[in-house]
Design a protein around this nucleic acid. Structure first.
Length: 276
DNA sequence: CCTGCTACCTGATGGC
DNA sequence: TGCCATCAGGTAGCAG
């Protein structure tokens, strides 16, 4: 999401929103689509911000449009309204592309698409009024996320490390892939209870989280996303992945077979020998 | 407060 | 081929 924010910023910052289209109203649920259109029409985009996995357009009236991609959401970019209306939800043979919501700006059109319809585009009067945003803990890429802060959070939780890392209300921005990867790098077993870590282990985990996220961000920015291509997806992430989705393959550190278990309804991949 | 379960959707993949 | 089960980068809402 940070790579998306950085790429999107120069495209939209400072631009006026001339027209809002909601092609699939499910994308604004439980908010009403006409209300989103009414509130956002004619406003200007002051900034593009992010916390955890929430991305938002900060508007000139203090309001915001939050974009949450869930599992499959993505941004699209069209040259103008004519191109948008020609291609949005049209036949693939006619360069059609699935679009849920679109914002016609002074120069270009920003689209939001999620065929699975988990993702959301919503309007809020201020940051505090968006519940999902309000409950987020410290952002994992922020300077407030220090080793001491992580140590303190760990000491307050009895949950297994893997579930602890996925809890956005403690640390925001770590998902299933990066939690597996961080624990692999820190050589910590995902089933370990958070509060049982020593200070040294907490520092190791902090270092692992930060380095995994920084390297993933570098990866996702080179090359940067091209929102004009609806097929676009992050390139080169595979080359930094060490444990995720490697069930049955050898651990890249010790050679033991990577295991897959279920924790909190999600898959966890780890090495049972070198992660302790 | 905390934890665990289910729902929300669509599409890809693999076994038979 | 078809059919069915399972899986997917996330969160919200609910019961206990």
């Amino acid at each position: 999401m940070e790579a998306v924010r950085r790429t999107l910023r120069p495209l939209v910052e400072g631009q006026g929103i001339r027209c809002v289209h909601v092609f699939h109203p499910i994308a604004t649920k439980p908010q009403s689509a006409p209300e989103l259109v009414r509130k956002v029409h004619g406003r200007a985009i002051r900034a593009v911000e992010r916390k955890g996995k929430y991305l938002w357009l900060a508007l000139d009236n203090g309001g915001l449009v939050t974009l949450h991609f869930k599992l499959d959401g993505q941004l699209l970019w069209f040259a103008n309204g004519r191109e948008l209306l020609k291609r949005a939800n049209a036949d693939v043979a006619h360069a059609g592309v699935h679009v849920d919501v679109a914002f016609e700006l002074d120069k270009g059109v920003l689209g939001f698409a999620d065929r699975r319809h988990f993702g959301r585009v919503q309007y809020w009067e201020n940051e505090a009024s968006c519940p999902g945003l309000a409950v987020l803990g410290v952002d994992a890429l922020s300077k407030e996320f220090t080793a001491d802060k992580l140590g303190e959070l760990l000491s307050l939780s009895k949950r297994p490390l893997k579930e602890f890392l996925l809890d956005q209300s403690r640390i925001a921005g770590i998902g299933n892939i990066y939690s597996c990867e961080s624990l692999w790098h820190a050589r910590l077993n995902p089933l370990r209870r958070a509060y049982t870590l020593s200070q040294g282990q907490a520092r190791r985990l902090h270092k692992a989280i930060v380095s995994v996220l920084r390297r993933a961000l570098e990866c996702c920015l080179h090359p940067a996303p091209d929102f004009r291509d609806p097929e676009w997806w992050f390139q080169g992430l595979e080359k930094i992945i060490r444990a995720y989705d490697r069930e049955g393959k050898p651990c890249r550190r010790c050679g033991e077979v990577i295991r897959r278990i279920s924790q909190g309804g999600r898959s966890t991949y780890f090495c049972g020998r070198c992660q302790r």
